[in-house]
Amino acid sequence: MTQRLQWIYGWLLLFPAMVMLMAFTHVPAVTTVINSFFSTPRGRREAKFVGLANYENLINDPTFWKVLTNNLWYALATIPASIFLSLLMALWVNDKLKGRSLVRMSFFAPTVLPLIAVANIWLFFYTPGFGLIDQIRMGFFGLPENSWLGSQETVLICMMVVTIWKEAGFFMIFYLAALQTIPPSLREAAAIEGASRSTFFWRVTFPLLMPTTLFVSINAVINSFRMVDHIFTMTGGGPDNASSLLLFYIYEVAFKFWDTAYAATLTVVLLVLLSLIALGQFFFMDRKVHYR
């Protein structure tokens, strides 16, 4: 009797969390995979099993390849740049300097501000003619005005800049925390041995930061596929999908074109891609990381 009661208590305690997890994570994930093998239900026409037809469509969809390429470039540029910048900022504000708290706060500010809001500010920066960038270009260098977000060549780069600006401050906090766990006596011991600043950085600081770098890089990868808020506000994916990313395309397909089956297929591709990258990072980098 008591055993059964315990059993009931156990399930009762698990129940709320389980319902939440099931309803919003597990069931949708599994349904997504299932849906990707069915056609989109329309009106009275029910969804029917179509096998790999959705995946064939995907391979033949030039927009898919376009946004995938966009996303890969976007990842390749934003991940290393934001990590490098965050490390640089962390090293800088970790040193003794005047107004250190103020500098730290300013670096962290982009993380605190909602992306949708700051995207509007960036929108102003990029505005042709009277935007901040063009005013500087025209005022100081006498260059003609330029439509930064209207041109296929520059729009993706503009989006990358916003992302890097947004992410670097966030990653800096992790690097800063890691830097502060390194005892100052290590630097002093190295100084007595005659190690220069750069030797110390490459031989000691950088290896000791590797666990943080791994963590930050995985976050950066996920963010590069996940953060699309500024695309909505600034470009809507245009012009001609030049700034559209995978997740943004999924959103469009699912909630603008209501092709839910195809959106499910795209989602599966995104999930597989992310899992592969994360696994690869863990297995590849784990061997090089020293955990204390």
Binding site: P183, S185, E188, R203, V204, L208
Partner: peptide, 14 residues
């Protein structure tokens, strides 16, 4: 031109 031994040894953990 001197060597120093620290209280916490200051060994490089990695």
């Amino acid at each position: 031109d001197l060597a120093m031994v620290f209280q916490n040894y200051a060994l490089f953990p990695h």
